[in-house]
Structures are given as structure tokens and as C-alpha cells.
Design a protein around this nucleic acid. Structure first.
Lengths: 218, 218
DNA sequence: GCCACGGCTGAACACGCGTTTAACGTAGTG
DNA sequence: CACTACGTTAAACGCGTGTTCAGCCGTGGC
């Protein structure tokens, strides 16, 4: 995704085409279609990767490494303003996100590991913020990290849904458009939620804690 | 799902079997498998529903109506304690949720409509809570509703992921187990988040609002 | 100049799966 | 009793698709 195709090796071109096509159409996308996207024959895809499953595994690995690099690049910029500024570049990686959503939806073990990684990272970020005083302490840090990641995944799924249903300006055309639209639609509310909360009092929280106590001691 | 199979009409038995099988294995599940689950032949499935797609449409409609009924039943109980009490019954409808997740993941237009309904409902609930004084006012009510629903969807997807990866006590066996485990793992953190928020100050929120202003007026 | 070799192709094969079809049994009806 | 209608089934058809195979073509070595 960094290099602008063309003079890439055929194998890499196939891989990139597969990531894009899988992200757009899901893993049901025929090998022949991917081959056509990459400008090669279907046989060559198999010749290079052995099987469609192996191709998908290669895509998984590739996406994971790219995301990991990008993540470690983002980790160096910690201030709120700079983190927000990363939004401008989100369009660049839209196909990657689309692929991840597809992988999630497919329910592969790889996706589960990937989410685990995200949750762990989020837990680390939150702990760091907690230490720095910008994040409130939690009674259940891992649960909170999971909650945060679930929200992000849910937003991605919703964006994917909108794109598939032909909402937005560009129907199904560019996955980046849907994600961009989604962020502009949900970011403010999300930050507001994370800043001020949702409830005015502790009624629900108290009720749940009582419910849990009753459950353990009937 | 209400009646305990057995003396159901074959058509209904097929539909229920399809909901369960689709929810468990996804829509790739062969018609023959569904037929076997329902104790009938593959041809009868087509004979009753016309095609696999039509069967899926019937499942969509059925699940939607059941959920709608359940939702309108839940709407009458408004207090925090009673809403929490609904958790106890979540297991009952686990196959429905599994089906919805599958439908979401498949990205059909029906799923998009379904999510739209959820978002609208959430917006109504939140507005009601706002009027009642239990929910904080928002600068972007629709966005907040979408955020809340996205979180729920994300949690369902994560539960589905865990189940597929064989986490939890029962590997892939019972979708209810995974959801129950998920709620017990995330509910506390979620309520905490919704009660107290995440950030200690308004830094991120301010930064994003400035970012937006700069974007509109460069 | 020629030979080998690896990237590459198009056609053919194999198979899973949705759907069709012909037939069978049974209940209701005249 | 015959006859129709309908629920039901097993076998067959056809299509989409992953994969294999035999061969082509350009390039580098001898």
C-alpha cells in the first residue's frame, strides 16, 4: 500500500489486490477476480501462494505488520492535538481497515488475536494516560480497554454496513469515504461521551453492582 | 424460538433451524445441513421458501419481529434495577443475537435497516432519559445514539470472535455462554464509562473541536 | 546459438452446493 | 372407491469456483 503498484513484483501486486478486493467484497471474492485486479491469471495466484487460504494468510500477515508499524509510529505522538491530527491520514489506510473489518466478520482466529493485540495496546495506553493523569482510574481496566476497542470495532462495522447499503456520497465505491464520514459523524459524540459520561448520577452503576452482589450471595 | 419445536409446522421448524444454524455457522451453511437440523430433506426447504435467499429473508423478518416484541416488552420497564434484571433473560435470546451478528457481518441491507432501527430507538431512549434527568444532554444526540449502538454491536462481534476462536468455557458450543461471559466481563466497565467518563479533563474534546474549526476555515 | 529454467497462461478437471424434477404417500372429498 | 392436492423425498442437473496441468515465452548461462 505504500508503493504505488506498477513496478511491484507480481506476488506483491497480487497480495495488495487481494487485500483490497477482500476488504471490498469479503472473502467470498473469487480468485479469478483478484487475479484480474492484479492483471495476472488465476493460476499464477495459486502458483505463488499455494491456495486461496494461504493467500488470505499472507494478507493477514501483511496487514498486521503494516498496522503494527503504523501503530508504533503513532505511539510516539502522545498529545491530544497530535493524536487528533492522525485523523487526516486515516483515509490512506482505509483499505487496511476494510480488510480488518472483513477479517473480523469472518471470525477467524487471526482476527481474534488481532483484537487481543488491540485490547492489550488500549490497556497500555489507558494505563499510561492514567499515570499521566489524563485518564480516570477504573475498577476494571481490562474491561474498560475491551469496551473502548469494542466501540471502535463497532463503528468500523457500522461504517462497513453503510457502505454496503449504498449510503453516503459514494455508493460502495471508496471504503475511505464511509470511514471518513463515520468519524465526522461520531467523533464528537464519542469524545463527549468519554469526557462527560452519559448518566447524570450513579444509579445504573449502583444497580448493577447490587445485582452482582445478589447473584453471588442469593 | 418461543415454542419448543416438536409440534411446530415443518416450515417453522426449518426457519428456526435456519436461524440457529446461520447464527452458528454463518450464511455459508449449506441448505442440506439446515434441512438435516430440521429433520427434513433439502428439497423441502426450497419448496417452502423458494430459495435460500428467500429463506434468509424469512429468517430476517422473523428475528426482527421477535426482537421488536421483546424490545417493546422491555420498554415498559424503565427503572435502572429492572433494566439490569433483563440481563438474566439474555441467554434465552442468544441464538437471535448470534443471528443478528451474522447478519451484520454479512453486510446486508436488512442489517443496515435493523441497525438504523436500533439507533433510532437508542436516540429515543436517550432523549427520554434526558427529559427525565437521568441522561446528560448532548451536543450531538444522533451521534451519541450511534456511538452507544456501535459499542453494543462491537461487543457482540467480539463475543462472536471469542466463541469462534474457542475461548471461554464452551468452545463454539453455546452462543449464549460467550455473550453471558462477555456481559459479565464488560458490563461493569461500560457502566463505569457511561457514569464517570474516561478523561479527567476536556483536553481531547477541545482539541477535536479546534481541529474541526480549522478544517472548515483553513 | 542454444539450452534450461522460472514466471506465466488458458483450458480442463473436480467438487460443493443451490435448485429442479419426477415420483410416492397420505388425507381429504366427491 | 377414485381422484385431487399437498407435504415430502431421493436423485439428478448445472453452475460457480478452487485447483491442476501442459505448454509458451523471455532471460541468463554455457
Amino acid at each position: 500500500m505504500n508503493v504505488r503498484s506498477e513496478d511491484l513484483t507480481a506476488r506483491a501486486r497480487i497480495r495488495d489486490a487481494a487485500v483490497a478486493r477482500f476488504g471490498r467484497d469479503g472473502f467470498r471474492a473469487p480468485v479469478r477476480t483478484i487475479a484480474q485486479d492484479a492483471g495476472v491469471s488465476a493460476g499464477l495466484v495459486i502458483h505463488h501462494f499455494g491456495s486461496k487460504d494461504a493467500l488470505r494468510a499472507a494478507c493477514d500477515e501483511h496487514v498486521l505488520t503494516v498496522i503494527r508499524e503504523q501503530k508504533s509510529a503513532a505511539i510516539t505522538q502522545a498529545s491530544p492535538a497530535e493524536t487528533i491530527g492522525l485523523l487526516a491520514t486515516v483515509r490512506e489506510y482505509a483499505p487496511l481497515f476494510a480488510y480488518i473489518v472483513r477479517s473480523l466478520l469472518d471470525g477467524g482466529e487471526v482476527a481474534a488475536h488481532f483484537v487481543d493485540g488491540l485490547v492489550d495496546d488500549a490497556a497500555a495506553y489507558l494505563a499510561a494516560g492514567e499515570a499521566a493523569g489524563t485518564i480516570r482510574p477504573s475498577v476494571d481496566p481490562p474491561g474498560r480497554a475491551r469496551q473502548v476497542i469494542a466501540t471502535q470495532m463497532g463503528l468500523l462495522v457500522l461504517a462497513q454496513l453503510d457502505a454496503a447499503a449504498g449510503r453516503g456520497t459514494a455508493p460502495t465505491e471508496d471504503p475511505g469515504t464511509a470511514i471518513e464520514e463515520l468519524t465526522s459523524r461520531s467523533m464528537l459524540a464519542g469524545l463527549e461521551l468519554y469526557t462527560h459520561g452519559l448518566f447524570t448520577d450513579t444509579g445504573y452503576l449502583d444497580a448493577y453492582q447490587h445485582f452482582r452482589q445478589d447473584k453471588e450471595k442469593p
